[in-house]
Design a protein around this nucleic acid. Structure first.
Lengths: 173, 173
DNA sequence: ACCTGAACACCGTTCAAGT
DNA sequence: ACCTGAACACCGTTCAAGT
C-alpha cells in the first residue's frame, strides 16, 4: 500500500511539449511521453483521460507561452505581429497545434488581449472587436500560409508582411 | 495471367474525398478507402505510394474544387471572400486538409488566381502581389479561427467579416 | 498484372494483478 | 494508490502466394 508517484501531470505535459518540438505531432505518442517521464504508457491514464486530452493540455501550455511572448512585446502593431510570427517560426508544430481545433478557445483568447487593447487605441471602443479580429485573422492566415508553403508566386515575403502591416494600420485608424 | 483491375486511382481518390467528408480525417484509413472501392487495403499500394500520398491527392482534388468555386464567383472582393468562406463552412475537414502542409502548394496557388486578378485591379500592377497576399491571408485566417472556435469574445461574426471586407477594400485601393 | 491472406511493427486503451 | 504486463482492437505497410 505504499503508493509511490513516479511522475506528475506537469511532467507529462512538459514531456509532450518537448516531444512535439523534437519529433512533431506524429511522434507525440503515449509511449514516447511515458518513456520520457520514466513510466509505462498505461500509467499515463491515471492522470490524463486519453491522448486527445493530453494534446489539449499541451496546446494550452503552448498557447500560454505564446501569450507571454505577446504580453512582453511592445504594444504596437508591428511589434505584436512580429512577435507572433517569430513564435510560429520558432515552433511551427506548436503553432499548428495551437491553431487546430484541439486547443481550448478560451486559453487562446488570452493571447489576443494585447491585440484587443491595441485595436481599442487605434480604432476606438466601437470598432475595437472587429478591428482586433481583422488584425489577428490576417496574421494567423499569413503565418499559416507561410508555414504550409502556400505563398508560391515568388516576391518577397518580408515585403508582403510589411505591406500588410502598413495597410492594416491605416485601415483601422 | 488475366489481370482484372478492380479499381482505379480516380475511384480511390473519390472514395477518400467522400470518407473525409463523412468521417473526418481520422476516419480516412487505408482500410476504409479500400472497402469503399471494393478491394483489400494492400491493393491500394499498387496505385498509391502510402497514406500520405493519398492524402495529398485528396487535398489536391479538393483544392481544385475550391478553385472552381472561386472561378465561378463574381470577381469582386465580397463575392470571392464569401465563396471561400462558404466552401470552408460546407466542408470544414476538406478546408483544413487543403490548408495543411500536406497539400501541394502549386495546386493551391491556382485557387488564388481570381484574387490576384482582383488585387491587380484594385491595387495596380506594382502592389498586386502583396495586396493579394493581404486579402488571402485575412480570409484564410478568419475562416481558420472561425472553424476552430477561436473567436470567443462574443460580438457578431458577420459584422466582423463585413468590417474586414470593407476596410481591406479601402486599404488596398 | 493485379489481388489477397498472413504477418510485422506499431498504435491507443483497458484491466486484472502486483506492490 | 499508483504501476505494470498482458491483452484487445485497430492502424499502415510488406510480401509471398494465388489467379
Amino acid at each position: 500500500m505504499p503508493a509511490p508517484e513516479r511522475t506528475t501531470l506537469e511532467a507529462i505535459v512538459d514531456a509532450g511539449v518537448a516531444i512535439l518540438e523534437a519529433e512533431g505531432i506524429d511522434g507525440l505518442t503515449m509511449n514516447a511521453v511515458a518513456a520520457r517521464v520514466g513510466v509505462k504508457a498505461p500509467s499515463l491514464y491515471k492522470r490524463v483521460r486519453d491522448r486527445d486530452a493530453l494534446l489539449r493540455l499541451v496546446a494550452n501550455a503552448l498557447a500560454r507561452s505564446l501569450t507571454e511572448r505577446l504580453a512582453a512585446a511592445d504594444p504596437t502593431l508591428p511589434a505584436l505581429a512580429r512577435a507572433f510570427r517569430e513564435f510560429a517560426h520558432d515552433k511551427p508544430a506548436a503553432f499548428r497545434l495551437i491553431m487546430s481545433p484541439v486547443a481550448d478557445p478560451e486559453v487562446l483568447a488570452a493571447a489576443s488581449e494585447p491585440v484587443l487593447r491595441l485595436a481599442r487605441d487605434l480604432a476606438g471602443d466601437r470598432d475595437a472587436l472587429p478591428a482586433a479580429r481583422l488584425l489577428t485573422a490576417w496574421v494567423v492566415g499569413f503565418v499559416t500560409m507561410e508555414l504550409s508553403g502556400a505563398f508560391r508566386l515568388g516576391g518577397d515575403l518580408e515585403d508582403a508582411f510589411a505591406y500588410g502591416l502598413a495597410r492594416l494600420e491605416r485601415a483601422i485608424a
